[in-house]
Amino acid sequence: MQPVLTEKEEKRNTVIEPEEENWDLVIEPKHSLLDLKLKELWKYQDLLWLWVRREYVGAYKQTIMGPLWHFFSPIFGTLTYILIFGKIADLSTGGVPMFLFYNAGIAIWNFFNGCFSSSSGAFLSNAGIFGKVYFPRLIMPMASVISTLIKFGIQISLFLVVYLYVILAQDYRPDVGLGLFYVPLSLFLLAGIGFGFGIIVSSVTTKYRDLNMLVGFGMQLLMYATPIIYTYSSVDPDLKKYLALNPLVAPVEAFKHAVFGIGDFSAYSLLYSFCWMVVLLLLGIVLFNKAEKNFMDIV
C-alpha cells in the first residue's frame, strides 16, 4: 500500500529530491562494467604528459650520456644476432643487409615488449602512489606506452643512420615507396596489442602473481613465433598456418614491407590483428577498472 502523503510532504519531496540527488561522485562497491571512464581519463591528460616527462627525465638525471644509452643495447643485440642467427645458423634475411635486418627486428620487438611489460607492471610498480591519491589509474600504463614510443624513436634513429649509409654508400636499393605509410599503422597495432594484453595481465596478477611467472618466458617464446629473426616468406607453408594465428605477424611484416619491401601480409591479416587489438583493449580496460577499485587491499 502506498503511504498517503500530505500536500506539505509531497512538496518537500519534490523540492529536495533533485537537489539532494545531484551528487558529483558516488562511490559504491560495484559499478557498471561497461563504464570505461574515458571521459575522466581525458580530464587528466596533462598528468599523462607530465608523467611521461617524469619517467623520462628522471631516468637520465645524473647520467652524462643520457638517452644515448638507448643505442647500446640494440647495437650489441644486433651484433649478437648477426653472429648467431646470421653467421652460425645462416638464416635468410631476404636479401636485406644483416645489420639492418636484425636491428629493425630488435627495435620493433623491443617496442612491443616495452609496451607490454611496462603495462603489465602498472599496478605492482605504482602501488605506492596508487595508495595515496586517486586519479584514473590507466594514466600510468598509457604514459609508459608513450615513453616506450619515445625510446623506439631513439632506437630507430640509429637504424635510419645505418640505413641511409647503406643505401648511399653500398648501393642497396630496397623496394620502398608509399609502403612507408604502414609504419604508423604497424606501431599502432603493436602498441594497442601490447598495452591491452599488458593491462589484462596487470589486473589479473594483483592478487595471484602466478601468471607473471608464465608471462616472462611466454614472451620469449612469442618472439620466436614472430618473424623477427627470420623472414615470414621463408617459413614452411605447413608451419605458416599456425604462425598466422599470431596477431603480431601482420604488423611486423607490414613494418618490414615498409622499410625493406619484403613483407608478406594482406589486408585480411591486418584486419585480424586489428580485431585482436580491439578485443584485448576492451577486455583490458574493463578488467583494469574492476581491479583498480580494491587493488590496494590485495596487492
Binding site: 551528487w23 558529483d24 586517486y134 590496494m296
Partner: peptide, 17 residues
C-alpha cells in the same frame, strides 16, 4: 579519497576532492 573502495554501502560527494 578513493584509494580503496567500500565493501558495502555508498559514499556520495559533491565537488572536487
Amino acid at each position: 579519497s578513493r584509494t580503496t573502495g567500500p565493501t558495502t554501502g555508498s559514499l556520495k560527494m559533491k565537488g572536487r576532492i
